[in-house]
Amino acid sequence: MTEGGKITVSCVLNGAKTDLCGEAAQPASEALRREGLFGVRETCSLGVCGTCTVLLDGEPVSACILPFYALEGSEVRTVEGLESGGRLSALQQQFIESQAFQCSFCTPGFLLSAAALLDSTEGALTDEQVEEGLQGHLCRCGCYETVKEAVRAVAARRHGQDAGRGAR
């Protein structure tokens, strides 16, 4: 139970053990933004648009309709946690190369669901697989085609590497 509606939860946030303090009725998106993680963007507040997506134990969830205290004991990743040592991930780099965004407001969400999709699959991906994995994201600039291209390019590259390893 909690005092006066204030709750402290412990989670692993972008690889670092973190204690977050928040109010009971607050969604996870607000608590994460208060930590300076502005890649968590709240737009529809209905769990529809996908801009507030975070990875909770590796699975994409909408932080705007996730109770703040549901983060307790879990591993949370935001777009800020995709790069390592100041280097963008291969997926992020490919988004730039494929010009998979225009205004970029929706990009963090797309990146996280795409990262989860790549983590949960092997080899090359079809358009349909990417569309299914990214179904919960809206892009009002209409960059869907280049997003798909970027994700498929990363998947194809790892597929090539796997095939190369297999041949040796």
Partner: peptide, 9 residues
């Protein structure tokens, strides 16, 4: 139901 993010929760 909804989208993958909703179905995960």
């Amino acid at each position: 139901v909804g989208n993958p993010q909703v179905r995960a929760a």
